[in-house]
Design a protein around this nucleic acid. Sequence first.
DNA 1: CGACTAATCAACTATGTAGTAATATTCTCT
DNA 2: AGAGAATATTACTACATAGTTGATTAGTCG
Lengths: 112, 112
Amino acid sequence: MSVLRKLTPETATLISDRFRALGEPMRLALLHQLRGGERSVSDLVAALGAGQANVSKHLQLLHRHGFVARRKEGVTTWYRIADPSVFELCDLVCGGIRAEAKSRRRLVERLG
Amino acid sequence: MSVLRKLTPETATLISDRFRALGEPMRLALLHQLRGGERSVSDLVAALGAGQANVSKHLQLLHRHGFVARRKEGVTTWYRIADPSVFELCDLVCGGIRAEAKSRRRLVERLG
DNA sequence: CGACTAATCAACTATGTAGTAATATTCTCT
DNA sequence: AGAGAATATTACTACATAGTTGATTAGTCG
């Protein structure tokens, strides 16, 4: 049931949009911070040492894709992870990176 | 062991590069085609109805990231999946899409 | 109310990259 | 060798978006 037989252009776009949302270092860093629990925008700005407007924009995007949820309390906005599957995604990708590094190493050894 | 405690900028870039490689509809379509087994470039060009140079470029990128492997036989190049974890990634993303759609539906119902 | 703060929004610049057309390369066949 | 086919490469255009700056909104405190 989890495997798609047909991949229509629309589905492909839906999926790729989601991957692209994760295809940005700062957004991954934001998600990583939120792994430690709810954080305000200024917390995140401080933690990443990045521009405030930029952080805000990235958070909007993550929110639009449903990766994070937010809650306003007075003048501050608190963000939190809404979709924990992002971390499974990251772990899978990390596995892929390890595998790729290993095969590259094999190649180098074969050449040396 | 699978969870990263610290996320250095370098690691974040490595991971995001990989996500971005999957953040393109045509590349997903290529991977989807390869799910059916080894395919030549012209097979893929025909299947996707896309430009040859473009398909070739996307395949290069997927190959550079270790998602696909290739084998030359005479004048044709055969591509195949090298890292089956991409499909797990896609399935996870699909789950996320479903969850997002569901929550959006809930929101609409609450408003309606 | 006015000063202050947190966050979002708008406008702009700069960079990356998808798509394409043309060319180059590599192999096969006669 | 020369012709033709399958890929790869290059050069170029168009568009998307990351980052920044400045303005704007919304809440808080004196």
